[in-house]
């Protein structure tokens, strides 16, 4: 593993994007450091007009840990950020509703926000998935094509750096 790591711990550091090496030496979609393991890493295929993408995976960390940053090579995207999709439920019960009740603008609204860390609980597993936590890729250098491999470096408080290959899927 010859990658130079992008240690984005602060917003100030994040401004200095650059600093991610070539992606040789990546090996497989599961990586481990100590007891921590990552599986099912994938990134969504993007269209030529999209400048953003997202990567997902499952991180297992017996004893718990904290994901503090993620990065990708500068040949892939300008920046990677930890994001959380946020949303309100479109309804609170039942499969139908009475339209006489106020519809309430903003019902079922979803958005997302950058987070500076994600806690992996002591008993377990953190799943980054659509509609939840994800690694947002900004300023994609080129579209993520089906079957492509996106090397992602995770920064964990206890486990340190973990390198993962995310496979591009629809």
């Amino acid at each position: 593993m010859k990658k130079m790591m992008y240690m984005a711990a602060t917003a100030a550091a994040a401004l200095a994007i650059a600093g991610c090496g070539s992606d040789d030496g990546s090996d497989g979609t599961t990586a481990a450091a100590g007891e921590t393991s990552v599986s099912d890493a994938w990134a969504r295929v993007t269209t030529p007009t999209q400048t953003t993408g997202a990567a997902y995976m499952t991180i297992e960390s017996p004893g718990g840990d904290t994901l503090t940053a993620a990065s990708v090579p500068s040949s892939v995207a300008g920046e990677a950020q930890l994001h959380e999709a946020t949303g309100e439920e479109p309804m609170d019960s039942g499969g139908s509703m009475d339209s006489t009740a106020p519809m309430g603008s903003g019902e079922g609204m979803m958005g997302m926000r950058e987070v500076d860390h994600v806690v992996i609980p002591a008993d377990g597993t953190l799943t980054l998935e659509p509609g939840g936590y994800h690694i947002m890729l900004l300023d994609l250098v080129k579209p993520i094509e089906p079957g492509a491999t996106i090397p992602v470096t995770l920064e964990l408080e206890k486990a340190g750096e973990i390198e993962v290959d995310a496979t591009a899927e629809e």
Binding site: T47, H83, G87, P130, G131, M136
Partner: peptide, 10 residues
């Protein structure tokens, strides 16, 4: 919107 990387493409 197309800039949306997560919810919309899903």
């Amino acid at each position: 919107y197309t800039f949306c990387p997560d919810v919309c493409p899903t």
